[in-house]
């Protein structure tokens, strides 16, 4: 043990800052986003999670379901690629709750909150990092889709609009994940919860197959009004044009409305869970 430089050898400034400045807040958020991204370097599994899994989904759906559902793989790609992009985005929101739960259970959250940093930075930094991961996954899906024949039929602005819609929706939807992350006792439960909720939501929609008129009427009703259906139809319309799903703007607005509703429910719930947990 060297005794060279130790704590409190430096005179402490007499006037301490009373609050965090906006500039510091931005810096704190960026630093904590960096922290959540640099982790990937040491945990290649996460990269596999972010890349291999979506690729596998695309290939399985396109080549196994595509020909079976009717038509060719090429006919199915405009249907399934937007569907998988939306589904993947929804699943990816669970990383927010998972990471938050790990931080809280491991004591990292306490350490961060004991520092003179912006109070919103720990969560905002994580959400920013998760947004970057979302963009990465969407890019991977578009590239693999392109490789097997999927084409954006509209234009770059429409593509950007689709990505913006997905990011906005997932940012709102992520509050459910935050709540789950704070409410359950261990990280694994976040995944179980997420899977059991998101899996049916994504499949009870028009993400992978059109809503069949031969399905039970109740099911048709649920599928038609599932926010996921609205999200997928909007993204699909923005990427490949009208596929008979209805007006894009309306679907986009309804899906965002659902997102706002989710956030309105889960932000207060999260705040309450946070106070109870911490």
């Amino acid at each position: 043990m060297t005794t060279a430089t130790t704590a409190a050898t430096r005179p402490v400034p007499l006037s301490l800052d009373g609050r965090v400045s906006p500039g510091t807040t931005v810096r704190n958020v960026l630093t904590l986003a960096w922290r959540n991204l640099v982790q990937i370097k040491h945990n290649p599994m996460e990269l596999i999670d972010l890349s291999i899994q979506p690729i596998m989904f695309v290939l399985l759906f396109a080549y196994v379901f595509g020909p079976a559902i009717g038509g060719t793989v090429q006919d199915y790609l405009p249907i399934v690629i937007p569907g998988i992009i939306a589904q993947n985005a929804l699943f990816a929101t669970m990383t927010t709750g998972f990471g938050l739960n790990v931080d809280v259970t491991k004591g990292v959250f306490d350490r961060l909150r004991s520092l003179p940093i912006s109070r919103i930075a720990p969560l905002s930094g994580r959400m920013l990092a998760d947004t970057v991961k979302q963009v990465w996954s969407m890019a991977v899906l578009l590239v693999i889709g392109f490789a097997i024949g999927f084409r954006v039929e509209t234009g770059p602005l429409h593509l950007l609009a689709a990505l913006a819609l997905l990011l906005a929706f997932t940012a709102l939807f992520a509050w459910a994940s935050v709540y789950i992350g704070l409410a359950v006792s261990e990280p694994e439960k976040v995944q179980i919860f997420g899977f059991t909720i998101i899996f049916p939501i994504t499949f009870l929609s028009s993400a992978f197959v059109p809503i069949s008129p031969r399905a039970p009427e109740v099911l048709q009703f649920v599928m038609r009004n599932n926010p996921m259906t609205h999200l997928v139809e909007a993204v699909r319309g923005l990427l490949v044009g009208d596929q008979g799903g209805g007006p894009v703007a309306e679907h986009a607005a309804i899906s965002l409305g659902w997102g706002v509703l989710m956030a309105a429910i889960f932000i207060p719930l999260s705040m309450r869970a946070f106070k109870r947990r911490i």
Binding site: D17, V20, K106, G107, V108, S114, L115, P116
Partner: peptide, 19 residues
């Protein structure tokens, strides 16, 4: 916020980022 500028905390569960 001023208190936080003066203190260090080592919790019961080592608060380090394992990754």
């Amino acid at each position: 916020h001023r208190v936080r500028q003066l203190i260090g905390l080592t919790g019961q569960y080592a608060g380090v980022d394992e990754m």
